[in-house]
Design a protein around this nucleic acid. Structure first.
Length: 193
DNA sequence: GTAGGGATAATCT
DNA sequence: GATTATCCCTACG
């Protein structure tokens, strides 16, 4: 019995529940440069009946990992410059996922800072594009399973109160009011209060 | 301290 | 050709 989260964990909850369960877990990347890790402090859920979800309106080449089994990673590029990292949830063929929006840096902080050039600790992973850069999650992780190195999750800290609120960056008329964003109350490493 | 808008390219219609 | 699950720099008080 290790503390690495296995497929059972990801399959045991629906997407909204999983988004909350992931708070406090530790995301670890063993790269050739060294190990970096952080505690997940902010997530967003994307459901298949939700207009803001990439899988809404059918499967395409880009979103095909979302239709894979729970625990698959889904990495995509947004706004031409940034990447976002998601964990696929639900059963195969459904097309739901949890976006990881922010981490609290835990291990390999020096390495993360050198990748991101002189940023304060608080700003190192406080956003989807930032944490991907700090952790050096590349697009070649797209479609990988998160049960084994180099990229995996394990049990983290106990979380206190969880705040439930609306998601960020969703356009009007796309279910932007849905309370599908979750973060740890009073944590200083979230992207936005 | 906060607010606003430009950068930039893969993906889809 | 439009759109996008963002970041960062600049301007202003």
């Amino acid at each position: 019995m290790t503390s690495i989260l296995n497929q059972d964990f990801f399959e045991s909850f629906d997407t909204l529940t999983l988004a909350q369960k992931l708070l406090g877990k530790e995301l670890i990347h063993e790269s050739t440069e060294g190990i970096t890790s952080g505690i997940i402090v902010e997530t967003e859920a994307y459901l298949n009946n939700d207009k803001a979800c990439h899988s809404f309106g059918g499967k395409t080449l880009r979103n095909s990992p979302m239709f894979g089994p729970a625990g698959t990673s889904y990495v995509y590029q947004i706004y031409g410059i940034h990447h976002c990292f998601n964990i696929v949830s639900s059963k195969s063929g459904i097309g739901e996922a949890v976006l990881i929006r922010a981490l609290e840096p835990a291990s390999g902080i020096d390495l993360m800072q050198s990748r991101r050039q002189k940023v304060k600790l608080k700003d190192l992973c406080s956003g989807p594009g930032k944490l991907v850069q700090a952790m050096d999650i590349l697009k070649n992780q797209n479609g990988n399973k998160l049960f084994n190195p180099p990229l995996y999750l394990k049990e983290g800290i106990e979380v206190g109160a969880i705040i439930e609120t609306t998601r960020i960056g969703i356009g009007e008329g796309k279910d932007e009011h849905l309370p599908y964003r979750f973060y740890i109350k009073d944590n200083k490493f979230i992207s936005k209060p």
